[in-house]
Design a protein around this nucleic acid. Sequence first.
RNA 1: GCCCCCAUCGUCUAGCGGCCCAGGACACCGCCCUUUCACGGCGGGUACGCCGGUUCGAAUCCGGUUGGGGGUGCCA
Length: 491
Amino acid sequence: MSTPVSPVRVRMAPSPTGSPHVGLVRTALFNWAFARHHGGTFVFRIEDTDKERSTDESLSSIIDLMRWLGLDWDEGPEVGGPHAPYKQSERSDLYVDALAKLKGSSFTYDCYCTTDEATARRKAAGSKVQGYDGFCRELSQEQVDAFLADGRQAVVRFRMPDGSITWNDLVRGEVTFETEFVPDFALARANGDPLYTLVNPVDDALMEITHVLRGEDLLSSTPRQIALYEALKEVGIAKATPDFGHLPYVMGEGNKKLSKRDPEAHALAYRDKGYLPEGLLNYLALLGWSIAADRDVFSLAEMVEKFEIGDVVANPARFDLKKADAINASHMRLLPIEEISHRVLPFLKADGVVGDPVSDADAQLLELAMPLIGERINKLSEASALLAFLFVDEADFEVDAEDAAKQIGEAGIPVLQASYDALEALSTWSTDAIQTALQTALVDGLGLKPRNAFGPVRVAVTGRRISPPLFESLELLGRDRSLGRLQRALA
RNA sequence: GCCCCCAUCGUCUAGCGGCCCAGGACACCGCCCUUUCACGGCGGGUACGCCGGUUCGAAUCCGGUUGGGGGUGCCA
């Protein structure tokens, strides 16, 4: 696909209801990457027409999410822009105006039917099509008067044209609907409130959106929108019909769309679980797109360079947490240790491993300790468990009971005693000296396999079977605390 | 029911007529490295839903079929 001629303008238009979904992130990412790749504009618009369900809390969590991910928008909340406001709840006058213009055209008509009446007629006629049947398309004045006299209020309905509607979908190719299967649809409620069917295209038109990249669930509403666009152009609201591209679903377990019920669906939870934004984004990008045949770890910048909407596949993808973890881990290994330290800090604070603010002593210790665990953690949140033993007050130091049971039993006591004696005799407290001393005492002296020799020491001193490298850990812990913990384990 | 979309390893995908008795990644299973855990390295198994057609030649094109998904609101 070549670079579009007109400047690209794309948008993400979430409804601020509930906790943001990873599917939203994927859609946002593809729109963002498309805009950045083409040097276009990425618009962030809020579709809060549903007053019942929209919340400020949801909106701010979407904003937090986007900020965390680093998906920046050129127009929208907090940054403004030439098409402000970007919240639909603040754009009512625009919709009233659009509705008025449309009502003055032949593209719409007033409809007095109830849903039940329409369904009953369809049924009676034995129609295969469901939805509105066009009954009110050509009402006589007498009929209108009768409805009015009956106290009925009209909804504004859009008159679908005859024939078929075809568009060249950016990810699926040519798609055609016969309009006989696309019933006339309501643009506004009887009370005048505009509906999504109206506001979404109107805002896209007003904001001059050139490409609509959205979920595949909107595929079947596209013919209606394309027909509406013709009307909007006619009444002077739209300049052009955008191109459409329908992104495949993100599925959960089984064959269901990943729902808000699934814990994996909540995008912000990944931040709290210690994922890197670049890891999550990279994984999500893989759901429907690939950068190359033999690669799947890449940066956002690389994605921007290579992203083509035409390369997006049309089939739905299953969300695989294991792979998300693996991709995240790869990104973790790509970060310099200082950067990991920097990002791990909030987790250490939250877990109470270090104070807030961090004392100079702890900061120093951290700088020495981080290189030991950098390659050992796959998420930022995993650092606390590995480092806690270094920072904890001696009084609060605890050995994991299960690990102790496995490593320090009858057999462990002589090992710990020998270790204590060897270390106690040390004049230089360094990793090398410690290693030599323990090696000599346990492996050579007691004839133990390294595994059996160092296991008990590890548990006694770090409190767990899983820890940073032992000798380095001992050095960082220091002579007094190391010997003290051995003694405690012996007691 | 009707309309639309989709269809390669368990999963995400590469493949856009011969380079493919199908490549990569995750997961899985062995082995190596190794003081634990990771990391890293090596090796292994597993896929073109089915039936026709086009073609010298099809995972790739066409038709059908089956299966899955979505839509069918005065929801978005």
